[in-house]
Amino acid sequence: MRALRRAVTWFGLPVLLVLVWWLVSGGSFYLPDPLKVVRAFWDTWVSARAFEDVLPSLGRLLLGYVAATLLGVGLGVLVGLSPRLRATLEPVLEFFRAIPPPVLVPLLMLLAGIDTPMKVLVIVSGCVWPILLNTVEGVRALDEVLADTCRMYGVRGGSRLRRFVLRGASPQIMAGLRQALSIGIILMVISEMFASSSGLGFTIVLFQRQFQIAEMWSGILLLGLIGLALSFLFRLLERRVLSWYYGSGAARA
């Protein structure tokens, strides 16, 4: 009985929404019914296209995201540990963060052409700022008592970096990584919509231009599922990295 109630609260509204979609879909050319979209989804994406368009896109996203993480955390620790460097660079970094990342696409097209390097570079240059600034903030706000304790016990070098600096700043770093992830997805799609002959963003725009409406909706659905899957994976990672933090109760304070 309880399981049934949970199933109804969990699936009730989505089922209702799909039914509404079904009912209203008859009248409009732009809104095909859900069955058609699901069929188009199956035909379009569960095929060779998954390897030709979807996986390379995701690969570029992963590559750019990892590079931005390494760069952002590395520089962030350096800047965060030195008050002088931080005071000098903060206005510059705030400026770079305030630039809406998609405007870098036309610029980087100019510098790096329209191939994979440009796309990865776009993702890196958009994702790095939230990670960098959050790392700086996290390192700045490290517990002073712990810093003194580390000094007292002679914890220094790599061990200090790993056990104290990165650990202590990790809640902030993860917050930056979460922001960067959604920016990264946006940039992955845009860089392909702009100038490209393959990739997820390109394919969806192509469908739209050829008025393949059901296929276009299936692409939107696929992007939604990718967003959902990535945010789920990120939550798993976050749980793991921050388990000490949630357990300590500090997260609630």
């Binding site: 609260t9 009730g12 509204l13 946006i186 276009m216 939107i220 939604g224």
Partner: peptide, 23 residues
């Protein structure tokens, strides 16, 4: 009742709507 729907719709990147908006 709305949690599952919100959790599904929220992570959809809004650029996914670009083709729809164009159309």
């Amino acid at each position: 009742a709305t949690t599952s729907t919100i959790e599904f719709l929220r992570p959809i990147p809004s650029v996914a709507l670009v083709p729809l908006a164009t159309l």
